[in-house]
Design a protein around this nucleic acid. Structure first.
Ligand SMILES: NC(=O)c1ccc[n+]([C@@H]2O[C@H](COP(=O)([O-])OP(=O)(O)OC[C@H]3O[C@@H](n4cnc5c(N)ncnc54)[C@H](O)[C@@H]3O)[C@@H](O)[C@H]2O)c1
Ligand SMILES: NC(=O)c1ccc[n+]([C@@H]2O[C@H](COP(=O)([O-])OP(=O)(O)OC[C@H]3O[C@@H](n4cnc5c(N)ncnc54)[C@H](O)[C@@H]3O)[C@@H](O)[C@H]2O)c1
Lengths: 221, 221
DNA sequence: TCCGTTTTGTTCTCCCGTTCACAAACTCCT
DNA sequence: AGGAGTTTGTGAACGGGAGAACAAAACGGA
């Protein structure tokens, strides 16, 4: 899914680790807000819900930011992880499809607080244009190109119905967006060099249902 | 995360495969609606966005539902996968926390169409009680026990702020819910035998940001 | 009936990720 | 200064999943 180009840069962090770094980051933020200055890998692992050995190995890919016999300085480690992920900088984001889900996303404060700034809300339906959502005006989808160019947007979010998703993705890619978060069902096809992450709620529920069914079967055995 | 009890039932399907079965199911539904009666592993794999060898191996865990030299009967395979996942039966679901996200989830048609029936929308805020969302009345959170008992609910969805999530989960577990889909940030701790799946949008965006940052670094090298 | 073609089901190998276990490194106390 | 106690960082073993490759099976045509 994630097509990487020629030169793999210096430190190569495993994909599984990358997916956990944001979790560590959040745990560290919580600890920091609670006034904790230092924490052990054991404590941080508990806060993040992972095995402590895994945590230490993950952190070792970034460098040696801990002190043996002591632990990690919470704020220092937090900064190092934030820098590695890239959330110390500001990421402009556009959201396309301001329906039920789009409204929720636009109102979600968790994006802004992590360096993601919603610069535009776009929708194809003229009836929605001009509506204010979370202090931002909904604009026509055709404005995509100019907005992306103006703000240097690299990340796009798709919250349209499934039938429109591929067309939206194509337009996004055409005007230079290289990372897409897709909430619509179905498979998006994009050129190499563009990253797509998909969030599919019905898949999550179906996985739960599978295990639930198994539990029920086990009971009557 | 998924704690399984004593007797692993007859066929043991790998977790990675379980997570892909819903994707195959959707692809098969699309093919069926397009009037396709039979398809090869190659075609289905393309529709699902996976490698055809992986698809065949996944399906082999369920049994031999294909015909060599021909392919798979779309409707037959669809039924078999649906049965295996458990979406041929009806799953009552409660959603707790009817804010921005809760509204979107309640209005989402993709749940109902896959066998998940929202039987209740619960919120702790009295100001929300009585509001109609997607044809269902929002009720007080304290009604959880009676609703779960009445409908035999096994699956709960948490869309409350993070601070309330653990308390909500505890209450859910106490009244018999054994599968939880959690949208709130942070780690939920639940007893063995309860499955939790977490959807964390800011993690997804941060993973994209990481790769985006890498692409940018690569360019100026 | 037999042969060529197509496509599945499965085996085998490789790679990634997880976990264990321990030496190295640091602090604190005597 | 030295030793006891802690905790990190990492080497190594292990397990599971991904993909290649192929044998087995079904079909169609002659
Ligand atoms: N609501 C949920 O909780 C939920 C959950 C999971 C997945 N999803 C998926 O997310 C997507 C959006 O869901 P929703 O409930 O918000 O749907 P919705 O119908 O409420 O909103 C879709 C919005 O997209 C706009 N749109 C349609 N075509 C467009 C185009 N070509 N360009 C720009 N905008 C366009 C529509 O005008 C509408 O405002 C769907 O694909 C849905 O399957 C939703
Ligand atoms: N909005 C999004 O797009 C989005 C995205 C990702 C994650 N989230 C997460 O999902 C959760 C909900 O987000 P939201 O935007 O809908 O928030 P929200 O504040 O709009 O809604 C939260 C709702 O939960 C209710 N609530 C609070 N405490 C409760 C309790 N103890 N029991 C029952 N109900 C309770 C509140 O009354 C409110 O209606 C948050 O944890 C948020 O971080 C939201």
């Amino acid at each position: 899914m994630t097509a990487r180009t020629s030169t793999e840069s210096a430190r190569d962090i495993p994909e599984a680790t990358v997916a956990r770094l944001p979790v560590y980051l959040r745990a560290l933020t919580t600890l920091s807000e609670a006034g904790t200055g230092t924490c052990s890998s054991e404590a941080l692992a508990a806060a993040a819900g992972v095995n402590s050995a895994k945590l230490r190995k993950d952190l070792s890919y970034l460098g040696s930011y801990g002190t043996r016999g002591v632990g990690y300085d919470v704020d220092y480690l937090r900064y190092q992880i934030a820098r590695e992920i890239g959330v110390t900088q500001d990421w402009p984001v556009v959201i396309v499809g301001i329906g039920n889900l789009g409204h929720a996303l636009a109102n979600y404060s968790g994006f802004r607080s992590r360096g993601f700034r919603t610069v535009a809300l776009l929708d194809a339906d003229p009836a929605r244009h001009g509506e204010m959502v979370a202090g931002i005006q909904v604009r026509p989808f055709v404005d995509l190109e100019s907005i992306v160019a103006e703000h240097g947007v690299a990340i796009g979010v798709i919250a349209t119905p499934a039938v429109a998703a591929q067309a939206v993705a194509d337009r996004m890619v055409a005007c230079g967006i290289t990372s897409i978060l897709n909430f619509a069902a179905g498979v998006l096809s994009v050129p190499a060099g563009v990253d797509v992450r998909k969030v599919d709620l019905s898949v999550e529920l179906q996985v739960l249902a599978y295990h639930e069914q198994r539990k029920a079967q086990g009971e009557l055995a």
